[in-house]
Design a protein around this nucleic acid. Structure first.
Lengths: 198, 198
DNA sequence: TTTTATGCTTACTAATTAGTAAGTAAGTTG
DNA sequence: CAACTTACTTACTAATTAGTAAGCATAAAA
């Protein structure tokens, strides 16, 4: 029996390479815009090899969102993130979206799947809801502490502000896709102007 | 020769019925999630009839966005909208998004097409950019006058705030799709709380 | 009344899709 | 070494896709 987790070699196993490639295509072109043939051709294998690792596209999609959820939890609990003061935690979040922008203007997971949501398999929908809920709860906590300590400023409840800010961030990457990086930077500037206490 | 514009009968012509149906499917399920077969079956005609009116799906998609752009311009210039005070113009905009929410949680045009943007035909991309640009310019003007007259309140430039607010509105409908109406209402409440002067 | 344009249908093609079944080479384990 | 497992390939199916070409009924125009 071989390991199910990728080994620490320079080149990841096929299973991981499929997921990486599919993730890129999802965030750059949308879930309904790539096929097992695309994946196979890009990886230099036959389509059936993809089916071997992920029997159906539903399985692949679900695995994709599940991995993002695991990454979110890992990132959130990282000492270099969890132990930061709130305003820097917020900047760390902004940096994630900035990274997406830098990677050929990828949208975020939520922004990539929201429009086609009803065409997605139920397990994928469930994972995405969990992903979004946990991210929102994390940000609400950051905002609550940030305001309490005087580092952050906003009206309304931390929960409401968290929903609004995350929605705006997802949208900002979409606007960057449709136009260019400028509106994204404008939105980020606006968020900083409003949130960081003077 | 018959008229190219729909007549004033109760039932619209096939050309318009195709566009109406396609618009609904686009906003409810995404652009890559419906085919000419779906349209044909739902309208009780053969797929070739759709091709007769819109030779390719590119043509259909472009016609769809073009119509939305015409509607935006018409709405914006309507006396009952153009002659409103800024805060009520903003509420009129919010009401449009509220209508989308009420129509089976349809996302807005921008939110429906942003993720798949790179898979869209160039003319469709161009129309969507124009649509978004004109809507943003309109809102920037509303915000500028609103702040000048003391009815609206925000920091930063009207143009920046307009980009941010529209992005948030588009995202709000997407969040409603993924979860339920509650986060949408939460975001709207937050926007009103922040924008309308006390 | 002949002609022409409109709005379709029927019948088709070529490509692509997800998915399956059977086979196989190489490595792992008992 | 024998049995088994892993990670594929080859070869296939059935469905769906966009799109085309030709035919036809109806209605409007000359």
């Amino acid at each position: 029996m071989t390991a199910q987790v990728p080994s620490n070699t320079l080149v990841p196993d096929t299973r991981t390479r499929i997921l990486d490639l599919a993730e890129g295509l999802l965030l750059e072109r949308g879930f309904n815009a790539f096929s097992y043939q695309h994946l196979a051709k890009a990886l230099g294998v036959k389509p059936a090899a993809i089916h071997y690792h992920y029997p159906s596209k539903d399985d692949l999609g679900t695995a994709l969102v599940a991995r993002q959820l695991r990454r979110l939890r890992k990132w959130r609990d990282l000492p270099r993130v969890a132990e930061l003061p709130p305003s820097e935690q917020l900047e760390a979040l902004f940096a994630v979206y900035d990274t997406h922008l830098g990677q050929d203007r990828r949208v975020c997971l939520f922004g990539a799947l929201a429009a086609d949501f009803r065409t997605l398999p139920a397990p994928m929908q469930a994972e995405l809801r969990t992903f979004n809920r946990e991210l929102t709860e994390w940000l609400a906590q950051v905002l609550a502490v940030g305001r309490a300590t005087g580092a952050l400023r906003f009206v309304g409840s931390p929960a409401a502000k968290a929903v609004q800010v995350l929605t705006t961030l997802a949208g900002a990457l979409q606007v960057a896709r449709v136009h260019d990086e400028i509106p994204f930077q404008v939105i980020m500037g606006q968020l900083r102007l409003e949130l960081f206490a003077a």
